[in-house]
Amino acid sequence: MIVTPRFAIEQALRTEPFSMSADHVHQAHEIYYLLAGERYYYINQRVYALQKGDLIWISKHDFHRTSNKGNGSHERILINFDEAFVATSMPDAPSSDQKQPLLPEKSFLLRPSTEEQRELEHLFQQMLDEYHQDHAYRHMYLQSLLLQLLIRIGRIQSSTPDTIAPERSEKQQRVYAVIEYLHAHYAERLTLDQLARHFYISSTYLCRIFKQTTGFTLIEYLQDVRVQQARAYLRETSWKVTAIAEKTGFDSIAHFGRVFKQCTGYTPLQYRKEQKKEQGNASTP
Rank of each mutant, 00 (worst) to 15 (best):
Y137L: 14
E116H: 00
S96E: 02
L120H: 03
H255D: 15
R14C: 04
L192E: 03
S238M: 14
H198I: 07
A187L: 01
I79Y: 07
E10H: 11
S144L: 00
K171M: 10
A187F: 01
E116R: 00
E119R: 08
T242F: 12
L182A: 04
K69I: 02
I79W: 03
R168G: 10
R231H: 10
E121Y: 02
H198T: 11
S95D: 07
L120V: 07
I179K: 05
H26W: 09
H198E: 13
E188L: 09
M1W: 00
G215N: 08
R65V: 07
L150R: 08
V3E: 08
A87L: 02
I151Y: 14
A84Y: 06
S159E: 10
D129V: 11
L149P: 01
Y141K: 08
Q117G: 03
R189N: 05
E167P: 00
T217R: 12
A22M: 13
S21G: 08
A196C: 10
F216T: 04
Q279N: 11
D54Y: 14
S202G: 15
P101L: 08
R152N: 06
L34K: 09
G53D: 03
R118L: 09
R65S: 12
T242P: 06
F216D: 07
P285W: 02
A243K: 15
T237S: 15
S202C: 08
Q143H: 09
F210V: 09
Q51A: 06
H64L: 03
F256S: 08
G72L: 14
T284V: 00
Y200Q: 10
T163P: 07
E180R: 14
E236I: 12
A254V: 14
S144M: 00
D134L: 03
D82P: 02
M1P: 03
S73E: 06
K211N: 00
I201K: 11
L182S: 02
G280R: 05
M140R: 12
Q125W: 00
Q45D: 15
L13N: 15
P91W: 10
E274Q: 11
L35C: 15
N68A: 11
D62S: 06
T15S: 08
P285S: 08
S158V: 10
P94D: 15
E180Q: 14
T88I: 09
H255A: 15
Q143F: 11
T267Q: 00
G53C: 05
L149Y: 03
R39E: 10
R14G: 06
E236L: 15
R39H: 04
L146Q: 04
V25S: 12
P268L: 01
N281Y: 00
P5W: 14
Q270H: 07
K276W: 06
R118V: 04
A36P: 04
H185K: 07
H198K: 08
R258N: 10
H26M: 10
M140L: 13
T248A: 14
D162W: 07
R168A: 14
M90R: 09
Q126Y: 01
S159I: 02
D62Q: 02
L102R: 01
L206A: 14
Y181P: 01
L150Q: 10
V178Q: 12
H255M: 12
P17S: 01
A243H: 13
L192F: 02
T88H: 05
S107L: 06
T160S: 13
P94A: 15
K99E: 14
K60D: 09
F250M: 04
Q98S: 04
